[in-house]
Design a binder for these strands. Sequence first.
DNA 1: CGAAAGTGGACCGAAATGGTACGGTTTTCG
DNA 2: CGAAAACCGTACCATTTCGGTCCACTTTCG
Lengths: 149, 149
Amino acid sequence: MLRVSKLTDYATVVMTVLAEAGSEVLSAQVLAERARLEIPTVSKLLKQLVHSGLVESFRGVNGGYRLAREPAAISVAEIVVAMEGPIGMTECSVTSGLCDHEHHCGVRGNWQRINQAIAEALASVTLADMMKPPGPKRPVPTPLRVALA
Amino acid sequence: MLRVSKLTDYATVVMTVLAEAGSEVLSAQVLAERARLEIPTVSKLLKQLVHSGLVESFRGVNGGYRLAREPAAISVAEIVVAMEGPIGMTECSVTSGLCDHEHHCGVRGNWQRINQAIAEALASVTLADMMKPPGPKRPVPTPLRVALA
DNA sequence: CGAAAGTGGACCGAAATGGTACGGTTTTCG
DNA sequence: CGAAAACCGTACCATTTCGGTCCACTTTCG
C-alpha cells in the first residue's frame, strides 16, 4: 500500500504532542496518555527518536522527553528516517550490488530520481506544519493525474 | 524503509520491457527472459497488471501480453496502485474509522496532504520516462512542494 | 485433437511488524 | 541513604505480509 509503518505514524503523533508541550519535559506515561497509545509502544519509539537525536531524554525521577530542536527545524522526513531508515522506494536504489542485473537495468536510475522527489516532499513538511490544522484552502498545488481509489 | 514491494519493482521492469516491444505481443516466458526474472513471478504480476487494465492479454497459442496504452500515458503511480492498492502513507489516511481517536488526531489531515504530494510525484513519471536513460537532463518534472498552511 | 499459452487459486516458508515483558541503571527526593 | 520514578536495553512472541512456487483449468490455433 506504499505506507509508512504504524510505529512511524505513532511517532509523528508523539512528536506533535512533544512539540505542543514546548520545552516542558514529559514522561513516557504522560506522552502515552496524550497520544492515546500504550506506554510500551511509546517507550519503544521514543528510544529510536532519542537515538536519532530528534528528542532529548532525562533520566531519574521527573525525567522524561523533550524535543531536541524547534518544531520548525524538524521535518517529517527526519522522523521517517529515524523510524525506518533511509528512504528508498526500491531495494536496489538504496544499496547497490544486491541485484545481479544492475548493469542492464535501465530502471534503477529513474527510481533514484523518484526517491529524491519523495524525500523532498517529506522534507518540506516540518513538525510545526503538523501542529497546525490542515487548512481547507489550497490542498495540493496541482490536481492528480491518477485516480487513487 | 518506505519502499514499494519487490513485486512492484519488478512490475516496472516488466512494463518497461513491454514498452520497448511496442505493439508486439510477448509471452510470459519471453518477458521473463528479457527482464531476467522467473516465469511464475512474471506471470503473477502480469495478472495484476491485466486486472488493472494497464496490460492486455491474449490467450491461446501465440498469446501473450501487450501494453493497453502508450507508454507516455502510463504513470508509475498507476503501476504502484495496480500492485499495492491505494497510495497512503498511513492506515488512517486511507480508510477512516479504523482509528478510535480520529477526532482528536490533528495529524491525520496533514498526512493526507503528504500522501497527495507523493502520489503526484509518482504520477509525474511515465513509463516513457522510465525507458530513457536517467540522463542528467530533466530530472523529475518538478520536485513538488507540499503546500501546508 | 493436442500443444502452447494465459487464468485463477492454493500453498508454504521466511521475514517484517507490532506488541509486550523483564531486568538493569540513573537520578531525585523524603 | 534508601526507595521510588524514570529511562534503557534486550529479548520474546504472535500475527501478518511477502516472495515465490505449483497445479488444475481454459482458451486458442494448427
